[in-house]
Amino acid sequence: MITVTAATGQLGRLVVADLLERGVPASEITAAVRNPEKAGDLGVRVVKADYNEPDSLVSAFAGTDRLLFISGSEAGSRAQQHQNVVDAAHKANVGLIVYTSIAYADRSSLALAVEHKATEEAIQATGLPFVFLRNGWYLENYTGQVAQAVENGVVLGAAGDGRVSPATRADFAAAAAAVLTDPVPGSIYELGGDEAFTLTELADEISRQSGKTVVYRNLPEAEYAQTLAGFGIPQPFAEILADSDRGLSAGELFVDSGDLHRLIGRPTTSLSEAVGASLKSE
């Protein structure tokens, strides 16, 4: 039995679909979700699993051979939530924990990495077999803002000339499905896209494909955080995003291991492809 947590989320849905495409029987896949009523279209077994409700997690993980533990989305509130998942997996004696972490979690200076590092350590402390998928940045973090960049003629950030190696959620989901179907316990994968770029190069690609002039404007970290907050992003998360650009500028989101390409058996989605798809969807 393969259990996928957060299976109604953007990444989880893609993983379930990929597992089915790989020929895993629907009867051998469990979607562990906070709101089961939202999971009826997944086509697999559905159970309730809330990271804030430990008892629901133990029940959901019963009989699980391979657990995909997708990290929570509430940055700053994940320490206890993740500990609940790890404790439940231990109690349920799952056969393998596959955890979606962050690039270089054991040594990253990013604020986002703190909870991931703690979670990895908690998983290792259980003694259960594990695989860590240290996912890099999502391409969607950028392509989701393409229309706004074209309208305003600017990409904002605090990343300087740092290079980032993002991939799409579909790329990361394919890697997770590959590991779940053919795991090598104890593996730690640093996952990033084949193509790295600066935010200036991102702006140039948007310009090239849209026919509109778009430039990258680099801001000091604090100013970028305040700008994001001015757009309506909660201040704590705005500061996390600005801190992530600081890390990007220092090379902490540049991943050249080739692990993602090898796991999915194909090139990762290129910046050109992703920008083109975003523009076509508008």
Score class of each variant (00 low, 15 high):
N135A: 07
D65T: 10
D87W: 11
I102Y: 13
E37M: 07
A49W: 07
A277H: 08
A105F: 14
G162Q: 13
E273C: 12
I264G: 05
A32P: 08
R262P: 05
S59K: 03
S59V: 09
A242D: 08
S257E: 08
N84I: 07
Y142V: 01
A222F: 15
G9Q: 04
A6N: 00
A103T: 12
A158W: 07
E53W: 12
E21Y: 05
V58Y: 04
D243G: 14
Y99V: 07
L14S: 03
V154W: 08
G186S: 12
I29S: 07
Y51I: 11
D87N: 10
L112M: 10
V184R: 11
D161Y: 12
P220T: 06
S249N: 09
L271W: 15
R262Q: 14
A170H: 04
Y99I: 06
Q81E: 14
L253H: 12
A178V: 01
G232Y: 00
H90P: 09
E53N: 14
D65L: 09
V24D: 01
V4Q: 02
D256F: 13
S210P: 12
G12R: 01
Y142C: 07
W137T: 02
E140Y: 02
D18S: 03
L156P: 06
L11A: 14
L180T: 00
A32S: 14
T268E: 03
S27I: 12
A111I: 09
S278W: 06
F69R: 10
A203I: 05
L263Q: 08
R134N: 15
T8L: 08
R217D: 14
I70Y: 10
N93R: 15
F130P: 13
I240K: 08
Q83S: 13
D245E: 06
G230W: 05
V150N: 02
E252C: 13
V214Y: 04
D245Y: 14
N52A: 15
V58A: 07
D65W: 10
E239M: 12
A170Y: 09
S270Y: 13
V4E: 02
S210V: 14
L110W: 06
W137H: 00
L253I: 09
V255F: 11
K280S: 06
A89M: 07
A250E: 15
G63D: 13
K212T: 15
A49T: 02
E273K: 08
G136V: 00
P129D: 06
S27M: 10
S77C: 09
S56H: 03
N93L: 15
P129Y: 11
V98Q: 01
G9S: 06
L271K: 02
A175E: 00
T100G: 08
V255M: 09
V4S: 06
P185S: 06
A75Q: 09
I206T: 01
T8A: 08
A229M: 12
L19I: 01
A167P: 13
G232D: 09
V4C: 05
G276P: 06
F172E: 00
G153S: 11
Y189Q: 01
V44A: 13
A176D: 00
G144L: 15
K48E: 11
E74Y: 12
E205I: 07
R66F: 13
L202V: 00
A31Q: 14
P236V: 03
